[in-house]
Design a protein around this nucleic acid. Sequence first.
DNA 1: ATTTCCGTGTCAGATGTCTGACACGAGGCA
DNA 2: TGCCTCGTGTCAGACATCTGACACGGAAAT
Lengths: 170, 170
Amino acid sequence: MNQDGSGVDLDKSLGYLLKEASSALRAAMEEVLRPLGMTVTHYSCLELLAQRPGLSNSELARGAFVTRQSMNVLLQALERDGSVTRPAAAPVGKALPARLTPRGRRSLEKASAAVRSVEVRMLAGLSGAEQESALRILRSMIHSLRDGGDGSHDGDDGGADGGGTGSTGA
Amino acid sequence: MNQDGSGVDLDKSLGYLLKEASSALRAAMEEVLRPLGMTVTHYSCLELLAQRPGLSNSELARGAFVTRQSMNVLLQALERDGSVTRPAAAPVGKALPARLTPRGRRSLEKASAAVRSVEVRMLAGLSGAEQESALRILRSMIHSLRDGGDGSHDGDDGGADGGGTGSTGA
DNA sequence: ATTTCCGTGTCAGATGTCTGACACGAGGCA
DNA sequence: TGCCTCGTGTCAGACATCTGACACGGAAAT
């Protein structure tokens, strides 16, 4: 329909490209996960739990970029499904540490392989140096975004080396 | 709560980092857009329309990474709001070319400035070469993901010239 | 010791988005 | 010409997620 072809600058916006890449990745993951009867959030939760056993519902939520409430329904489903267990009472505070069951671990194994294949495909055509570069750049973006996002403006926490507004770059 | 500190490999997964960055960007955008009474999808639609006037509902949907149905409700709201106009009848086929009204353009202008500031913040600490590198890498990822996703097996013309850490630039 | 503050789990409702299905117009092809 | 495929707009329902609000436990501040 349209054909003005004026690729104004969407193709040059890192923000748009970021969203596009993320969307493509999600779609690709959904595609390989669907045959396994799993959703992306589903998988994320399991993977998180495998790598950091004992995470609480809220922590899981933060790790999967959803709200506590959303993660809670998912966790309940996973518990019902027998993939995850949570103690009836909190060992400390109110947080209930969740853990993978053998069954959950098996589930994850298949899903993990599928997802890994997607990631491999995504990285095809990229040199090792480029991948390293991407890692560094993405971390920098995340950090910069978070620093200024919440109120204060200067941010002194220190974690970041290249935090400044300066374009010092390397 | 947890303390095992075993940063297994989430911090090394490009997929996770991609999701994290995208999430952080979205959050930052929502934050600056909220005072203007706009959502991210809202803004995306307006921006798309500004850069490619006459896009149809379906095209807009693809550009904003939502379904036609979702974009349609948004478009109806924008029309009701007086930011967008669509002809009552389709000039050709069934597609209705949408266009920004002066009011929509004004709305967008403020939003665009806000969003641009977020993007600038995100890019702070990155050299020009790194930004170029990021552009190239993200495009490669998107391409690789899409190529293998739907049927064909090999594809990928490359795009990766082994430029390394943001050196080539162009 | 008391107060204050933060994080957590949970309930309820509202909202946005998606899936599924339908009819229509345009273009390619036999 | 007729057929078939593709893309489009649209309706309706189902689903997932989010926002808002509440009570509780622990740790720091007073």
